[in-house]
Structure formats: C-alpha cells, structure tokens
Design a binder for these strands. Sequence first.
RNA 1: GUCCCCAUCGUCUAGAGGCCUAGGACACCAGCCUUUCACGUUGGUAACACGGGUUCGAAUCCCGUUGGGGACGCCA
Length: 625
Amino acid sequence: MNPVEVGLQNRCRHHCRSGLCRQKANRQGQTGHRQNPEFRPAHNCSQQKRQNRHCPRPEWRLLGQHEVETDARGEADRQPKRPAAPFSRQSCEHLGCQLGNAADGHSPGWLSARVVCVTMHGGDRPHGPAPVGCIPHEPVLNHRSTHKNHREKIVRPMTVVTRFAPSPTGFLHIGGGRTALFNWLFAKHHGGKFLLRIEDTDRARSTQAAVDAILDGLKWLELEWDGEAVSQFARKDRHAEVVRQMLERGQAYRCYATPEELEAMREEQKAKKLPLRYDGRWRDRDPSEAPAGVNPVIRLKAPQTGETVIRDHVQGEVRVQNAELDDMILLRSDGTPTYLLAVVVDDYDMGVTHVVRGDDHLTNTFRQLQIYHAMGWTPPEYAHVPLIHGPDGAKLSKRHGALGIDAYRDMGFLPETMRNYLLRLGWGHGDAEIISTEQAIAWFSLDAIGRSPSRLDFPKMENLNAHYIRECEDTRLTTLVLPFIEKKLGRALDGGERDLLHRAIPGFKPRVKTLVELADGAMFLFAKRPLTLDDKAAGQLTPEARAQLTVLAARFGALSEWTAAALEGVVRDYAEQAGLKLGKVAQPLRAALTGSTVSPPIFEVAEILGKSETLARIGDVGSAN
RNA sequence: GUCCCCAUCGUCUAGAGGCCUAGGACACCAGCCUUUCACGUUGGUAACACGGGUUCGAAUCCCGUUGGGGACGCCA
C-alpha cells in the first residue's frame, strides 16, 4: 500500500501525530490531512507494535479450548453492547472459532469477541487464519498517545541526579513542595542524588528570608537534599563564560535595543494582533552600528527554521516550530545571566539527569534545549508536572492554596500527611490512598504522573491528616501539639501538665483532624477552675443535673480505686437506680468536667484529671452553689 | 493575538479496544455501634464535556467543537 493510496482512500486512522502528517492534520483539518501528498501512513511511523495479541481478555484463557459463551436469550437483531447473562456454552467448530458465525442467530460482533482462543493461539504464538470476528488486531502504540501508560519509557543507565530549583522571591508554596517531593522521590527510587539550587540571579527580588523559608519548608517536609544548597548567583562568572563562548562561535549576538524600544515593539505587535516576540532587529546588524553609551544584552542566535522537540516523561512528545521562538536574552545589559541561561549551565555542570518541574516551564524548555544544542551538550530528561489549582479550579491565589508550606504546618497538618496528599495529587498507584513514604519511594515513577491539572481539596487533606494523627505515636504527638497548646495558653506547660497531656492523647486521637483541633479539644485539661462553660454545656446543667452530680461526687469520693472502669460502674449503678439513661447522667458530668458537650469518653477524662480535680470541678457546679 | 498543554462522580483518581452494569478514596446522605463527639462498620446518591470518524466492538485510537490552563519580561 503506498502512502497516496492510503491517503486518498481514507483518513489515516492511526496515530498520525508525528511529522508532516500531524501538522497538516492540525492546521487544515481532515481534508488537508487526507490530501497531503507527504502524508505518512501508519506503517511508516515508528510505533511499537504489539504482535499477535488476539483476544486479550484474560478469562478467555481460563475457559478452555474452543468454547464460546453465547447469550441464551438469543436476541438476533439487536446487538447488545454487552452480552446479557445467563450464558450457555457451546463448543467451537474449529480453530477459527466459526461459531461466532451467527449460527444461533447472534450477531457475530460481540459473540465472536467472546471466542476462546487459548490453545489454538498457544499463548502468544500467532495462529492460522483469523477466526471470524477474532480479527488479529495489531494495536499500535502511539508514540505520542494521550494515555500516560502509552508513554514510551526512556531508559538510560545512569546515576540519577535531580534537583529542586526554587527562586527565593517568596515562600515555598504547595506546588513547589510537590515538585520537590517528586524530585526527591525519583532520586530516592533510583538511589540517586537530590540537589538543591537557589535561583537567586534576580538580585532585586531575592531575599535571605525567602531562602530561609524555603529551606525550613523542605526540612519540615523531611525532604533532605544532598550536599550544600547551590547559589545560582555565585556562579555568574561561569554563566558569562559560557555566553562568551557562544559569542565567539557566532551563536549569540549583542542587541542594543533598549527596554523602552522593546516595549514599544510589543505594544505594536499587540495592536496588530501579531505574535509577541523579539523581531531580531540586531541579529544580523553590524556591531559598528551600535549606539554609543548603551550596554547591550546578549541574545542567542536561535535557529529560525526546523522544529524543537521535547520528549517529556509526562507530556509525551511536544514539538514547536523554531519560527515560533524568538532570540532569547542570555546575558542582561548589566552582565548578569538570565534564568534560561543559568538553568542550563547549572543543570549541566551539576550533572542533573532529570528535570522535574511545573509545566509552566514547558515552553521555557524549548529555549533551554536550544542552548543545549548551541553548546553541544546532552540535555537532561524532562518531566513537566501539571500545576495545582485552587479548590475553585482557578490558579492558586493567596486566598486558597498558594500559602507557604509553613501555613499548612500552622494549620496543624503533619508532614507525612502533606507528603502523602501531595503525592496523590497527580500521581496514583492503582487504588492506593494511604501511602507511606517508604512505599512511595518503592513505587514512584515519572511515567505515572497524570497530565491534567489537579485541585486542592482540604477535606481530603484533613481526612488523611486524621489518619496520620491516629497512627502517630503518643509521645511524638504530644511533642507536636505542645506548641499549639502553649500558644493558646500563652505559657509553657510544666512537667505535670505535659504528662497529663500525654495521657489524654489516646482519647483525642480518633476525634481530631488537625493538631489545632487537638489543641482546642485539650484546653479544658489546663483550664483554671471554675471552668467557663459553653452554652450547650450550661444547658446541660439543670438544677436536677446539678443535684445528681452532687450525689455522684459523694460516691466518687468513696472510691478506693480511681479508674475509668470504677467511675463508670458508679455512674451506671446510679443511673439504673434513678431509672435514667446513662447519657442523662454522663452529659452533665461531661459539662462539669470539660465545660463542653464534646470530649473524649468522660470516665477516661475523669481518670486522667485525677480525683481531687474531678471532685473540685463537680463541686464548682454542684447544687450546693 | 500566537504557540503549547489538558478534559472519567463535587474533588483526587483507576482505566493500555472486549475484563466496564465504569472501580477505589474524600466529601455528602441513610442505617448500625454508642455516655457526647468522633472512630469503626453497612448501604446509597454521583462521572467518561460535546460532535464526527475508525472498528464486529470506543471511556480508551483519530479529527473537530466547546470548556479550562500555561507561556509569550533585561522574572524565575
């Protein structure tokens, strides 16, 4: 079959998203596609082919040779999308599964699809003439399929080196946290290195406070980096040196256009609805025309024809015409490097093998690739991770998600919660939801990262946090919640109070979603008598209830053993004698002891509070008042 | 405006042409458990954006439409 024949006959029904075929299809629609003489049919494309894979459903292989499942109801005309139960089984006539031939009045369509092709197919071996309906399909993997599982796995033996490269112009936000996590996990998974580089070439906006915030954030997330954090600015001489080489080789040139001039150019382009790009006005101009007293920037002399292709672990193959890209600035007029240049040089010098970053950098990658090409360097592999949106689907803003990672800490989230939640945002492993960091390292792969942007969902984050709080060991949880309590209390806890907290922790674990809730709930432990009652608690303390409490207090006082079980025994006996439900007595007791209607099991609370404090708190609200 | 990317329950996702009557999780609703609130447990509501095409068969492959997002700085 020659290409023209195929092209005229039909649209290409295979994966024509490569080469000319794709461009024409995109620009001119189907017609252009069909008529394009240079159309490349499927067989010229370099897809992987799955050979001889008939009847891929596993259970067919379990049914035995030459068996066919048929629909006993035999609806001849309608072609049910799915066969309706119950089935009867019939033997297949011969290797070709001819029974599919509507012998029983079934449409061959789905019937033949249920042909059992085990033995005759001999596992993966090809067999003779295709049985009816059992068309030997040769599903071809599109080398740029939309499906993440279709992405070709790029395997290159090497020691993996990843890096996280934040710019210190603000805090570490949640998207940055996830990027760092992915880089860290990928490096750990491969036993490689995870480096940290601070992209501080913008001197005006970079601050030490931001650097500290980022470092603190990473430490809190427990994402340790290898070696010292690299300052990009400190490497500016090396960057300039690389540009000098490009200049010497004619791969870069000086541009004397002023910022104002360029701004005017962009305005004009905008007005004329033209693409916004540098027009190359100094690309081929003689340096002798340079105006006096203007410090030039240095631009890359980028190729103007052909295309630049990114083979991305997440995005697949992405290509752009070089004509779409303008000559980027490498060195500013003050001699400092721009981001585009510095990133390439540093990644190269640091031996970075995999660049994992937000997909807002995808278009930068084309330009960075051009620098790699100009320098003759092998570029790293890329994985551009979709961005995280706020709960409303819009870009993250200060209002919702774009908080510093420290804000999540202050909201009472645990670092393991954040790691688990962030991991699941855009990455999945079957039905797994609760994923330990160890498991994440074992499972993580770039190719399983989804391509669509995801939204932040606080309820789910809280649910995960509740899980990790329940899992958290009591002593650690006590330590974690202590700052929250002390802040609320406005003072430090003494040793006895810490012990009280520690003993109360198990009662709170299943009841709270965040450390803040835990701290709130535990405040009554440290409250000064007499307790301030909330409205509902006050409502519980009717005169009758107060009278009951006074009786109970007397019986409690007589107890020789101060345990939750003993206290419960007393209260149950009392309730039974008085003909009351347990709750009728327990709720006022809860109000008296905690000042609230919500708390851990009240007898445990009383045990932890101790005899004298319990009796005193009851006394405060007793009928004697 | 130009280029690029994306599209399954409200949300995160599973999904590799027939295992899909589309699965799981969060959230929500109802029942059970129960001294409160939770936890736990049982069940329920809920999605393949739309239109074409390819195929015996499409959530899945192709094209288009619509909708969202990103980039287009002497920011990173």
